[in-house]
Amino acid sequence: MDFEAHLTAAAAAHGFVPDTAQRAAAAVLADLGRELRRRPRRFARGVYLHGPVGRGKTFLADTFHATVGVPTRRVSFHEFFDSLHSAVFSHGSADAAIAQWAGDSRLVVFDEFQVDDPGDAALLTRLLTVLRKRRVSLVLTSNHHPHDLLPNPLYHHLFLPGIALLEECVRVVTVSGPRDYRAHDAPLGNFAGGYTWNGASDDAAGRRHMPEPLERTTLTMRSRTLGALAVRGTEVWFDFAELCERPVSTQDYLDLAERFDTWVLTGVRPAMTGDGWQRFANLVDILYDRDRTLYVRADRSLPDLLRDSPMRTERTASRLALLTRAS
């Protein structure tokens, strides 16, 4: 069965029919799969899937990963990049760390590829260089065209070499069909706990009783401590300011996601800085990827929260909308 047939079957199992944009992207992925299998010692130009949220980019990439039939690694970009920093420190060399991580993979699938930090630009360019030399092909999903990565005009020039290399390594394919599948059709999974605001109590988030002062506790992380409003078994309560407006790292969020299955975040509001909102967006990504349950208690409705936020919010908005569907 070729990839396009696999995709049609997988879509049917999820209750939908691939749209025109998805089928066009599937044809490009099918070409990549055939080249990888036919010419195992040659570099095959990969695929960069970009477009609005909820159009099926991750579904396409995951179905391809599951069916391509060559040694493949699939990673969430947040989790991978944080582990890469640690590996580079351990090895003393980015090249050695990347080579060990890639192993014998012929294909790496990166979900949610993004570049927002100027400090990461050089390391990402090195990553692309090493994988290209090792003849590792890429499939990437992103909400942004390569030219829009690292969008801050003060720093965008730092990633121009990386963008040029990326476009040598992949075919850029737009997936922008008319339907937002996540908004209407995506299963809620464990992630979608609920969203409540201004003290509303008519949903699952509002019905969870607020912690008492005696429940406050301190959690010890690798590099810092965090104050939690409560820990109830595998359920943790945090205040938004403590978790997102302090310099908490993505690795801290990843470690906490291993420890707690259910999260309640109170006092959510537009962050005072873009860094604070970026941390919140990273946290939402991680909990969504790990299928951890999230309840949000905010000071305003979701449309108002997103309107007043200090930076772009497309993916975060799409994932938070799942919480409102569950409420």
Score class of each variant (00 low, 15 high):
91 H>D: 15
142 S>D: 03
1 M>S: 10
286 I>F: 01
6 H>D: 12
210 M>Y: 08
150 L>D: 14
275 D>P: 05
195 Y>K: 09
111 D>W: 02
46 G>L: 00
162 G>Q: 06
183 A>T: 15
160 L>P: 10
147 H>P: 00
102 A>F: 00
66 A>H: 11
279 R>G: 09
191 F>I: 13
129 T>H: 11
105 S>F: 01
207 R>L: 12
154 L>I: 10
27 A>Y: 08
49 L>F: 04
16 F>W: 13
148 D>N: 13
91 H>G: 10
198 N>K: 14
84 L>Y: 02
255 D>M: 02
232 R>Y: 03
123 L>I: 04
136 V>K: 00
286 I>V: 15
167 E>K: 07
230 A>M: 01
228 A>G: 02
116 D>K: 13
69 G>M: 02
83 S>R: 10
181 Y>A: 04
14 H>P: 01
12 A>S: 13
223 S>D: 15
265 L>G: 08
4 E>A: 05
321 A>V: 05
214 L>C: 13
10 A>V: 11
312 R>M: 12
93 S>C: 06
55 R>A: 03
159 F>P: 08
296 V>A: 07
40 P>V: 12
237 W>T: 06
85 H>V: 04
271 A>D: 13
262 T>Q: 11
326 A>N: 11
20 T>C: 05
23 R>P: 00
311 M>C: 10
250 T>S: 09
131 L>Y: 08
296 V>M: 10
296 V>E: 10
258 E>W: 12
41 R>P: 03
46 G>W: 00
162 G>V: 04
312 R>T: 14
107 L>E: 03
300 R>S: 15
58 T>C: 03
237 W>G: 01
9 A>P: 04
225 T>E: 15
47 V>A: 01
195 Y>A: 04
216 R>G: 07
36 L>A: 05
164 A>C: 02
293 T>L: 05
9 A>V: 14
4 E>D: 08
184 H>F: 11
37 R>A: 11
24 A>H: 09
286 I>Q: 01
3 F>H: 03
176 S>M: 09
184 H>M: 02
46 G>Q: 00
163 I>R: 14
252 D>Q: 04
303 P>M: 04
241 A>Q: 14
135 R>S: 07
318 S>V: 06
14 H>A: 11
118 P>S: 00
187 P>H: 05
180 D>R: 09
325 R>Y: 10
294 L>V: 14
204 A>F: 01
94 A>V: 00
144 H>E: 14
139 V>H: 00
251 Q>C: 07
183 A>G: 11
295 Y>H: 15
5 A>V: 15
154 L>S: 15
286 I>T: 12
162 G>R: 02
86 S>I: 12
175 V>P: 03
215 E>N: 06
217 T>M: 03
128 L>E: 03
283 L>Q: 13
49 L>E: 06
303 P>R: 07
155 Y>C: 05
214 L>I: 14
279 R>L: 14
115 V>D: 07
258 E>K: 08
44 A>I: 00
261 D>E: 10
306 L>N: 10
229 L>A: 09
102 A>H: 00
290 R>P: 11
298 A>Y: 05
270 P>G: 03
139 V>I: 08
215 E>P: 08
130 V>Q: 12
203 D>M: 07
298 A>R: 08
39 R>V: 11
39 R>M: 06
8 T>M: 02
68 V>D: 02
192 A>H: 04
272 M>P: 11
128 L>F: 08
54 G>V: 06
19 D>A: 05
323 L>D: 15
96 A>N: 03
293 T>A: 09
37 R>S: 10
212 E>D: 11
